[in-house]
């Protein structure tokens, strides 16, 4: 059994750890709210993009764009979006389990986040590029990722591009999922509840003058669409990272509190025991004198 002298420093070190985990929990919850807020801020952009796309699409009957081309899949690229740091529970392991399902021989990875690059290197898969993104992803962080993926697709180096990312369901749960990125089927995943429905847009027969042409407008839109899709994926990854960290740190703080309680109880028992012993000795000595 540990002596009281050994227990005291243990209690002290656990309580300072608990202080750190509590602070991290607080920081994570603030950052999570920020990431969620940023996701909401992309909505007006997505709505406008969708509206312009619908208007342009109704004007163009035969439209082909290299990014729409469906090819037989011989090689694919996977954009893997992970966290930079650990301490967020099983978030990354769940993500990598999903990423590991792609055949290493035909898949190249584009990673965002340090953990993802480490995973790719460790499992000896092919890494095409890695991109950093900080605690607060900016739109500028998303652009090069989307540009590289589009470029690889257009050059025929890969025949499809998928995004593997952790989705934010709510504070308590996050789920890794795969989403198709290229070829662009129909612009989807940006439909927003409350946005004008197709029927409403179809009823609106305003005759727009397109400059230079609806085709050009659509081509330009695809670029905007690929960028915003990646940007939203980055934000979602960040929100889930922070919420997972918040939960993990809450667990750690709770465990530390339990440990401190147990150790303090034991420490007090030992202290009481030694006091009782001392008293007994004094009483015994006195009785011997009498």
């Amino acid at each position: 059994m540990a002596s009281a002298r050994e227990l005291r420093p243990r209690i002290q070190s656990i309580s300072s750890t608990a202080q750190i985990t509590r602070a991290m929990q607080m920081v994570a919850s603030a950052k999570m709210r920020k990431a969620q807020q940023a996701t909401l801020m992309t909505r007006p952009f997505a709505q406008l993009l969708y509206r312009i796309q619908r208007r342009a699409a109704t004007r163009v009957h035969e439209f082909t764009h290299p990014l729409l081309e469906v090819r037989e899949v011989r090689k694919r690229a996977v954009i893997l979006i992970s966290t930079d740091k650990g301490l967020c529970g099983a978030l990354n392991s769940n993500l990598f389990r999903l990423a590991a399902q792609f055949d290493p021989a035909t898949t190249v990875f584009i990673t965002a986040g340090k953990r993802a690059s480490q995973f790719v290197a460790r499992t000896r898969r092919q890494l095409a590029a890695e991109f950093p993104f900080g605690d607060t992803p900016r739109f500028a962080d998303a652009r090069p990722i989307a540009a590289l993926a589009c470029d690889m697709f257009l050059k025929g180096e890969v025949d499809e591009v998928k995004v593997v990312v952790t989705g934010f369901i709510n504070t308590m749960s996050q789920k890794a999922y795969v989403v198709d990125f290229l070829p662009i089927g129909e612009i989807k995943g940006l439909k927003i509840p409350g946005a004008e429905s197709d029927a409403e847009l179809a009823a609106d027969t305003t005759d727009y003058l397109f400059e230079p042409s609806p085709q050009d407008t659509l081509s330009f839109l695809f670029q905007g669409y690929t960028n915003i899709l990646i940007y939203r994926a980055l934000l979602e990854a960040k929100a889930s990272e922070q919420s997972a960290r918040m939960v993990a740190m809450k667990g750690a703080s709770d465990n530390a509190a339990d440990l401190i309680e147990d150790l303090t109880l034991e420490y007090n028992k030992l202290r009481q025991g030694s006091i009782t012993n001392a008293l007994l000795e004094i009483a015994g000595g006195q009785m011997g004198n009498e």
């Binding site: 305003t206 005759d207 727009y208 003058l209 397109f210 400059e211 230079p212 609806p214």
Partner: peptide, 18 residues
């Protein structure tokens, strides 16, 4: 605009441009 700078007043014709 892609075709040069242009001004827009209210009641402009519907237009989409880069």
């Amino acid at each position: 605009g892609i075709a040069g700078q242009f001004g827009v007043y209210p009641q402009h014709l519907p237009l989409m441009t880069q």
